[in-house]
Design a protein around this nucleic acid. Structure first.
Lengths: 168, 168
DNA sequence: TATTGTTATACTCTATAACTATA
DNA sequence: TATAGTTATAGAGTATAACAATA
């Protein structure tokens, strides 16, 4: 099943070429992806690299990364959640959420409040500061989302969200 | 811009509930994502987690991960590439590719051959063993791709590949 | 000077396992 | 006994910087 490849080795490209018989190909634009072209996972991985880089850059001034943003957003919309509930909802390991919350708590954006019904649990809340900060983060995230729209097109972005809705 | 939220707190769900006034919400199905719903990056991240997990599981018997597969495929389709060329084409750090190739070379799937035109470079080739192994990996990867198709639908998968083609 | 492959370091993320205090 | 939060560890993955050999 070696899949008729899109090698397109159009022999004499205008760029540098390891000319004299030695087996070294250097020309990046010339390199075919073969089977990778048909793999959704490959395209999705490359897209995610781009999208996360843009998110990190766009929210660079406020030093908020995608995972931190998702945690803040969910807590903001669902005050009083336990750490387990947040971890499960976002598909984050509970062990990792501990450190994420440590950092967010040190920055006074989130507070852990001991639950009275289950003394093992913490009820998570935004601080007042966290609430106003999140509003700003959301504006920046919306700007990032517009970058995505510019990159792939408004209609395509909508389509994408629809296709992937079952994973959220 | 607090975006009218899809909290849908339909009060009395059939599942357990922190009943008596204490501020603890536990019910995972009840938790709204708020602004995350509108973010392509969030959907893409969740999708990628699923897709990579399925890939790793489907190619578990042969112990090949997505990045290893992409490296083997590109070398197979473009024998003689330098490490820099592979790294650039796949968006991998050249420092990381060193370790990836160390592992693939130890498994006798790939060999580094000193270039005669540029003595700094290695020309990368599959071994005979690597070539037959890759054929098997491709069959398994095709099975994985069918899982994707089953999960999101044939038409949606095609759409996705088209939308994201500019990132490959 | 610049580039290729390499080594090293650090930080993020994922995946576990084990511990404690509760339930 | 099971669960919530925590701590610790190990392996990927990402991002750098620096070095030797070579261009």
């Amino acid at each position: 099943m070696t899949a008729s490849v899109a090698r397109t080795d159009t022999s004499t490209s205008p760029r540098k070429r390891a000319g004299n018989g030695a087996a070294l190909r250097e020309d990046v634009d010339d390199i075919g992806l073969d089977a990778l072209v048909g793999h959704a996972g490959y395209a999705v991985r490359r897209f995610q690299l781009w999208i996360f880089q843009d998110f990190i850059k766009t929210l660079g001034d406020v030093d908020i990364r995608p995972t931190q943003y998702s945690v803040l957003t969910v807590i903001g919309a669902n005050p009083g959640l336990s750490q387990m509930a947040v971890a499960k909802r976002l598909g984050i390991e509970r062990a990792r959420l501990v450190h994420l919350l440590d950092s967010l708590e040190q920055r006074r954006l989130v507070k852990r409040i001991k639950s009275k019904t289950d003394r093992r649990s913490h009820a998570l809340h935004l601080t007042a500061q966290g609430d106003t900060a999140l509003a700003k983060f959301k504006r920046l995230a919306a700007a990032h989302e517009r970058h995505v729209e510019e990159k792939i097109g408004k209609a395509n972005r909508e389509q994408l969200l629809q296709i992937l809705a079952c994973f959220t």
